[in-house]
């Protein structure tokens, strides 16, 4: 797992010109499921993220067990029954973004396309994003929705009404220049 992260970082940082790779080990990824019966929210504040402004590439990886839920039972069901954290401990995304994002202060809207791997299933996704360059940092933000069924995550019929068919995901990663 560490090797994969290391390779991603090395690939992103290998540049012939001025390095424009930014990374964090503390990206914030949260998800939200809203139904009339119950709202479910979980947060993960240890996503590893790397953004390369020159290559226009973005990579994320996180441990499923780092998502913390307010209720004990939700935490257990998520890890044991839905994403099966022991079998598929991490989720990852790697892709590219459209549009020019210079290493100059500003907020830039982008479209990000790439492969999202979750629960052992890889899907091509295209989502809107925002890259903010400020104080030498790059903040990557995105909000999008995924369907658990697209990633072969089975929700038992007993709790089907309590879990939304589309889960909203929010990402905020404040990345510093890679050393």
């Amino acid at each position: 797992m560490r090797t994969i992260c290391f390779i991603v970082l090395v690939c992103l940082s290998y540049l012939p010109m001025q390095a424009q790779t930014f990374m964090t080990r503390n990206g914030n990824v949260s998800f939200f499921s809203k139904t009339p019966l119950e709202d479910i929210k979980a947060e993960n504040s240890q996503a590893f993220a790397a953004v390369d402004l020159t290559k226009k590439s973005v990579a994320f990886t996180l441990l499923q067990r780092n998502f913390l839920f307010p209720k004990q039972l939700m935490q257990e069901h998520y890890n044991e029954n839905y994403v099966e954290s022991e079998k598929f401990p991490k989720a990852q995304f790697s892709g590219t973004f459209t549009g020019d994002v210079p290493n100059k202060p500003g907020t830039y809207k982008v479209q990000v396309s790439g492969q999202l791997t979750l629960h052992g299933v890889t899907q091509q996704i295209t989502v809107p994003g925002e890259l903010e360059v400020k104080d030498g940092k790059v903040t990557a933000k995105s909000a999008f929705a995924v369907k658990p069924s697209d990633f072969n995550i089975k929700i038992p019929s007993l709790v089907k009404d309590k879990i939304a068919s589309q889960i909203n995901i929010q990402i905020v990663a404040v990345c510093l220049p890679a050393k």
Binding site: R2, L9, R25, F48, R65
Partner: peptide, 12 residues
């Protein structure tokens, strides 16, 4: 302890 990415992860 939740596992390892680049570093060993400890949450909560």
């Amino acid at each position: 302890c939740t596992g390892m990415l680049m570093d060993v992860s400890i949450v909560d």
